[in-house]
Simulated assay, not measured.
Amino acid sequence: MRDDAEILELIRRGPEVTALLWDVCEFDLERAGYYSPVRLSSGLPLEGVAGDYTGGAFFLCGEPSPSRPVLYASSEGEAGVIGRDLAAALAVTIGLPS
């Protein structure tokens, strides 16, 4: 299985993959910085990696490592972990896009 950094790099380098992710579930790496400040109550760091058309954002949680849990935060202030790593989060996001 590929780690989070490898998956992000494959998306960045593959315009077809980027377009498919946008078409299916609005997962867009270009929108990584378009979100309100988000923090974890534990104080662990968050790394914004993508956004969607609703203003929501996807974050890798915790200290940098090959695989980290992914948190989705909506523009309305709701948030939750959607996968144990980026591969699992993308599977959920693609399988249940809305």
Rank of each mutant, 00 (worst) to 15 (best):
R39W: 11
R39L: 12
R39E: 15
L40V: 07
L40S: 13
L40R: 14
L40T: 11
L40C: 13
L40H: 07
L40A: 15
L40I: 07
S41K: 13
S41G: 09
G43Y: 05
L44N: 11
L46T: 09
L46D: 09
E47D: 09
E47G: 01
E47R: 14
G48V: 02
G48P: 15
V49D: 06
A50W: 02
A50L: 06
G51I: 04
G51F: 04
G51H: 05
G51P: 01
T54K: 12
T54R: 12
T54F: 10
T54H: 11
G55V: 05
G55D: 04
G55N: 10
G56E: 01
A57F: 00
A57M: 06
A57N: 15
F58M: 13
F58R: 08
F58V: 10
F58C: 11
F58Y: 15
F59H: 09
F59T: 09
F59Y: 12
F59I: 10
F59A: 12
L60I: 09
L60R: 08
L60M: 12
L60T: 06
L60H: 00
C61E: 14
G62Q: 12
G62N: 03
G62W: 06
G62M: 10
E63Q: 12
E63T: 10
E63N: 07
P64Q: 12
P64L: 08
P66H: 06
P66N: 09
P66A: 13
P66W: 06
P66F: 05
S67L: 12
S67M: 14
S67D: 07
R68N: 02
R68M: 10
P69A: 14
P69H: 06
P69T: 08
P69E: 07
P69S: 13
V70D: 02
V70P: 01
L71G: 05
Y72C: 02
Y72K: 07
Y72I: 07
Y72L: 08
A73F: 00
S74R: 10
S75C: 08
S75H: 12
E76L: 10
E76V: 00
E76D: 12
E76I: 00
E76R: 10
G77W: 04
G77M: 05
G77V: 00
G77A: 06
E78A: 09
E78M: 07
E78G: 07
G80F: 01
I82P: 07
I82H: 04
I82N: 04
I82Q: 11
I82Y: 04
G83P: 04
G83Y: 01
G83H: 04
G83D: 02
L86N: 01
L86P: 02
L86H: 03
A87V: 02
A87F: 06
A88C: 06
A88P: 03
A89C: 01
A89T: 00
A89H: 02
L90E: 04
L90C: 04
L90G: 03
A91Y: 06
A91E: 15
V92A: 15
V92N: 13
V92P: 03
V92I: 14
V92H: 15
T93S: 15
T93E: 01
I94W: 11
I94K: 02
I94R: 07
I94F: 11
G95W: 03
G95Q: 13
G95L: 14
G95I: 12
